[in-house]
Design a protein around this nucleic acid. Structure first.
Length: 462
RNA sequence: GGCGGCAUAGCCAAGUGGUAAGGCACGGGCCUGCAAAGCCUUGAUCCCCGGUUCGAAUCCGGGUGCCGCCUCCA
């Protein structure tokens, strides 16, 4: 396995710290709104990473935190006259529902900020004791970046030459522009109590404290979106280094951004693409497959056109699955296919290449079935290939008929099937004009018919 | 201003020293009562200029263009 390390800025061979055990920690969502395509991209990228390890018999422990106390959540709660936990709970549930629809596996550990208070206050205390942090008169506690000689080693930026924009809030309280809050003193009714008074923890502190609490040492891989590299991960690294004496992570991975029609997707631009909206129109696997079509580090530019192109690709996988029917899979997938897939994934998660191999495998499967539709041996083998793909990439897991009927009302389905039965009679009577008329009628309803040796099957068009 | 990314056929997208994967769209063919699906098939010399090399999309230098981080953000 080779992964691109964003600190070394090159691909490195991956070696776990402890034998076959791999520890992965990914920065999860701040639950103040529904999940958007950017969340999905990150979640899918690291889900793929995890699956790649798991398929090769590594013992993975996967952690993803949930930030459930934060200004944005507090503001929303105030705005809607609700409790913080109510707001956070709603959006966490929404996040988990969306990610499940994308076949993202649940984390083994998903610590919440509100449940990690002790770990955080302990770390603050340690930093204060080591004089790596200081408290301002109004009660805020800041990390003192001047005490950390290695500050800047993650993002490798020279802060002195960085254009620091004017900060309106409380910058006068800080000793140094680079310093960041470990603890924000209470400003209203929403706060937690701590040895330092009431308030809430700083965002950067979360991951450091959680990693220390759950892993007690350096983890193998720390991941997150590219925007987190600085300052979030720089700060995390500094805190852990100063508080514990060891580095926070051995490898750093960052996924690229999502853009919408060429523009950055962001809260402030108001062009967020919410997963739950997309799931109204597209099967979750379609979105997942689309996200896998480009490399995780590249910028990802969303367009409906590309999404549809991806859907057609996934459709082909499902049509093969449909042709294979109930055939029990062979014990193992085709050796060469499995090897190629793993090689692609081991090369810093080259999903584009893996998908290309998948396309070729599907074509081979169809070819074999065209040649001999009853060849049990090849049917079993291709069924095993699809199982393998399902486990590795998390696509093709759905029942093919249900996949092609995604989002349709059961009564509508009955209607279609009644019409198909009518057409079958017309066909039997060689009344092709009538049969074609029915097909046109069905097509107008958005359904495509396919006559096969085993009868007529249908799909939602497009 | 500092740091970084990207530029490959109509579109999406791999490849990063040996003569351009894959997909979508398009055209052609096979199959089909007709279709759909499936299979086969046509198409790019890789932003520009210069250099290194027997050989570069791939390395180096110089341009041009687009984008991002430095402020909450996946």
């Amino acid at each position: 396995m080779h992964i691109y390390d964003s600190v070394a800025k090159r691909k490195l061979p991956f070696t776990p710290l402890h034998g076959r055990d791999v520890t992965i920690y990914v920065c999860g969502p701040t639950v103040y709104d529904d999940a958007h395509l950017g969340h999905a991209r990150s979640a899918v990228a690291f889900d793929i990473l995890r699956r790649t390890f798991e398929m090769q018999h590594y013992n993975v422990t996967f952690a993803k935190n949930v930030t459930d106390i934060d200004d944005k959540i507090i503001n929303k709660a105030i705005e809607q006259k609700r409790s913080i936990s109510d707001v956070a709970g709603e959006y966490l549930q929404s996040y988990e529902r969306d990610m499940a629809a994308l076949n993202v596996k649940s984390a083994d550990i998903s610590p919440k900020a509100t449940q990690s208070l002790e770990a955080m206050t302990q770390m603050i205390q340690t930093l204060l004791d080591k004089e790596c942090a200081y408290q301002t008169p109004n009660g805020d506690i800041y990390f003192d970046t001047s005490k950390d000689d290695d500050y800047g080693c993650i993002a490798q930026r020279n802060e002195d030459e960085t254009q620091t924009k004017q900060r309106v809030e409380s910058s006068d309280e800080k000793r140094n522009v680079k310093d960041f809050a470990l603890w924000k003193a209470s400003q209203g009714e929403f706060s937690l109590s701590s040895p330092f008074g009431t308030g809430r923890p700083g965002w950067h502190l979360e991951c450091s404290a959680m990693i220390e609490k759950h892993f007690q040492g350096t983890i193998d891989i720390h991941g997150g979106g590219a925007d987190l590299l600085f300052p979030h991960h720089e700060n995390e690294a500094a805190q852990t280094r100063c508080a514990t004496g060891h580095k926070i992570a051995n490898y750093w991975m960052h996924n690229g951004f999502v853009r919408i029609n060429g523009e950055k997707m962001s809260k402030s631009l108001g062009n967020s693409f919410f997963i739950k909206d997309a799931l109204q129109n597209y099967h979750g696997e379609v979105l997942r497959f689309y996200l896998l079509s480009s490399h995780y580090r590249q910028d990802f530019n969303f367009s409906e056109e590309d999404l549809l192109a991806s859907k057609k690709r996934l459709d082909k996988l499902y049509r093969l699955k449909k042709r294979l029917g109930e055939t029990a899979a062979a014990k193992k997938p085709e050796a060469q296919f499995a090897k190629g897939m793993l090689e692609a994934m081991n090369d810093d998660l080259n999903t584009s290449k893996a998908l290309a191999l998948l396309d070729e495998m599907v074509a081979q499967g169809n070819e074999a079935l065209d040649l001999d539709p009853k060849d049990k041996g090849s049917k079993k083998l291709f069924a095993a290939n699809l199982d393998f793909v399902g486990k590795l990439l998390g696509v093709g897991l759905e029942d093919p008929f249900r996949y092609f009927q995604f989002g349709l009302d059961p009564r509508f389905i009955e209607q279609i099937e009644a019409l198909i039965a009518k057409r079958a009679e017309a066909k039997k009577a060689k009344d092709f004009a009538a049969a074609d008329a029915i097909r046109d009628e069905i097509a107008a309803m958005g359904i495509t018919l396919m006559d096969t040796p085993n009868g007529t099957v249908w799909e939602k068009s497009g």
